[in-house]
Design a protein around this nucleic acid. Structure first.
Length: 410
RNA sequence: CGGGAACUGGCCCAAUUGGCAGGGCACUCGGUUUGGGACCGAGAGACUCCGGGUUCGAGCCCCGGGUUCCCGACCA
C-alpha cells in the first residue's frame, strides 16, 4: 500500500485528558477515530489489525468444529422478554421505532441462537454442535472508558455449544479452553486461566485475564500453576495460603456453562435414545477482538509508539523512501515495493515525496510495523537498504537482492 | 449512576479585571530543503458546545441543557 494514497493521517498531538495508552496511540497513529464515548470507527490501518485478530480466532474456532454464522445485531423484544432479560439486563440498549415496534441491540446472543437451534436440533444424533460468530455487540455501559478496553459498541466472537450431557459439555468446555490458550498465545498475549463466579448461570465460570496495570479487574495469581482466581471467589482461606499474588488484569475472554437456562426458556429439547424429551445443555464462550487490540497496545508500546506483535501487525514491512530529489532512490524504492508485494510481503510504502526523513521515522515508530526498511542515497550506493525491527535499537544493512530472503528468515 | 475537570478553526492549546478572538500543527500557493516531526514568504479557514440571562460591552459572570475525559460504583 502506498502511503501517499492511504486513508491515513497521523497526528502530532492528542488530547491530554485522554490518558490511556491505547486510546492515545491508536488515535494518534490513525488506527481508530472516536465517534462517541466508547464508540469508534476502525480506519484502514486499525481495520487490518482487527481483521488479523479476528482471523486468528476464526481459524482456531474452525479447528474445534465451530460453524461460523452471522446473527443480526437488531434483536426482537420477544426473545428478550422470553428470558426475562428485557427487564433485568441494565446494559441492554432498547430501541423504539417510529412505527411503535421495540427492539434490542444485541449485547450477547443466547436469545437469538437458542430459537435458531430449534430448527437444527431435535435428536441426540444432532448433538453436540457448536456455532460462533464475529460480530458487533452493543452494551449501554454506565461508563465507557480507556479507549477500546470498555466500549458501548465493540467486536465480539461468541461461540455457543449444545450438548446432550454434562459430561459431553465438560469435554468440549475444556477443548475450548485449550483453543483459547492457543489463540492468546498466537496473539502474543499471556492470558491467565482464571476462576470466576458464574453469575446467574452456573456456580463457576472461567475468564482469560491478561495482567495489565491499567486493567479494571483485580485477580490473584498462582505463579506455580499459572492460573488465577477472580476477586469474586477469592477467599480468606486462599489469602492465608500465601500462594497467591494480587495484580490488576483485563479480561479478554470468558467461558460459561449455561446449563439449561436458555434451552428451557425457548423449549430447545432433544429426544434421547430411549425416546425421552430432554433440555439441551448449553455453554457460551466469548472473546473481544477490539478489546484485545486495546490490550495489545497497552502491553506493547514505548514512548514513541506502538510495537505490534507480528501476528497482528497491520503490515509486516514499513518501507521508507528517503529519496529527496534523488530519482534513482525513488525508482529503486518503487521497484523494491513492487518486488516485496509480489513476494507476498505486506508492505506499507512511505512514498510521500514532500515529507522530511524525520517525520517518516516518527510516523513509522508511532504506527509500529514490525520491520522498517529504509532506502536512501546512502544505502543505494551500497545496493543496500537499512533493516530495523521496531523493537530493537540497532539497524543493519542488507543487500537489496537479499532482503526478501532475510525477511523470510526472521 | 455519584464526584471532579474540561469544551475556542480539521487537530492541540492561548486570550490579564468583563474590552478588537490569537498561536502551533494540518491545509493552499511560491521558493528552499531531504537520515529523526526542517525553513522563508504569502493565503484561506471561527455563529468560542447549545439555549436563556446580567451588562454600554460576555470566550470569560449567572441559570438551564448537552458532550467528553478522569476517579468511584457497576461490569450476564
Amino acid at each position: 500500500m502506498r502511503q501517499s494514497k492511504y486513508f491515513l493521517k497521523t497526528s502530532k498531538t492528542v488530547a491530554k485528558d485522554d490518558t490511556s495508552a491505547n486510546a492515545r496511540l491508536l488515535e494518534q497513529g490513525g488506527f481508530i477515530k472516536k465517534e462517541m464515548a466508547g464508540v469508534y470507527t476502525f480506519l484502514p490501518l486499525g481495520l487490518r489489525v482487527l481483521a488479523k485478530i479476528e482471523n486468528i480466532i476464526r481459524e482456531e474456532m474452525d479447528a474445534i468444529g465451530g460453524n461460523e454464522i452471522l446473527m443480526p445485531a437488531l434483536n426482537s423484544k420477544e426473545n428478550w422478554t422470553t428470558t426475562g432479560r428485557w427487564d433485568s439486563m441494565d446494559i441492554l440498549f432498547k430501541i423504539k421505532s417510529e412505527h411503535g415496534y421495540e427492539y434490542a441491540l444485541g449485547p450477547t446472543h443466547e436469545e437469538t441462537i437458542t430459537p435458531i437451534a430449534l430448527s437444527v436440533i431435535q435428536s441426540y444424533k444432532d448433538l453436540p454442535l457448536a456455532v460462533y460468530q464475529l460480530q458487533t455487540k452493543f452494551r449501554d455501559e454506565a461508563r465507557a472508558k480507556s479507549g477500546l478496553l470498555r466500549g458501548r459498541e465493540f467486536r465480539m466472537k461468541d461461540l455457543y455449544s449444545f450438548h446432550a450431557s454434562n459430561e459431553d459439555l465438560e469435554k468440549y468446555y475444556n477443548e475450548v479452553a485449550d483453543s483459547y490458550r492457543t489463540i492468546f498465545k498466537r496473539l502474543g498475549l499471556d492470558a491467565l486461566y482464571t476462576y470466576a463466579s458464574g453469575g446467574t448461570f452456573s456456580q463457576f465460570s472461567h475468564e482469560f485475564q491478561v495482567e495489565l496495570e491499567s486493567g479494571e479487574d483485580t485477580i490473584y495469581v498462582n505463579d506455580k500453576t499459572s492460573e488465577a482466581k477472580n476477586k469474586e471467589i477469592f477467599t480468606e482461606e486462599d489469602k492465608a495460603s500465601g500462594v497467591y499474588r494480587e495484580t490488576m488484569a483485563c479480561e479478554v475472554g470468558n467461558i460459561f456453562n449455561l446449563g439449561t437456562k436458555f434451552s428451557e426458556a425457548f423449549g430447545l429439547t432433544y429426544t434421547d435414545q430411549e425416546g425421552a424429551s430432554k433440555p439441551v445443555i448449553m455453554a457460551s464462550y466469548g472473546i473481544g477482538p477490539s478489546r484485545v487490540m486495546g490490550v495489545l497496545v497497552e502491553k506493547f508500546h514505548d514512548d514513541k509508539g506502538i510495537i505490534w506483535p507480528t501476528a497482528v501487525a497491520p503490515f509486516m514491512v514499513h518501507l521508507l523512501a528517503l529519496s529527496g530529489k534523488d530519482e534513482a532512490v525513488a525508482a529503486a524504492a518503487d521497484k523494491l515495493y513492487t518486488d516485496l508485494t509480489a513476494a507476498g510481503v505486506e508492505v506499507l510504502y512511505d512514498d510521500r515525496a514532500d515529507k522530511m526523513a524525520g517525520e517518516k521515522f516518527a510516523d513509522s515508530d508511532l504506527i509500529g510495523i514490525p520491520f522498517r526498511v529504509v532506502i536512501s542515497t546512502k544505502t543505494l550506493a551500497e545496493d543496500s537498504v537499512e533493516l530495523k525491527p521496531r523493537n530493537i535499537v540497532d539497524a543493519s544493512m542488507v543487500k537489496i537482492n537479499e532482503l526478501i530472503n532475510t525477511l523470510n528468515n526472521v
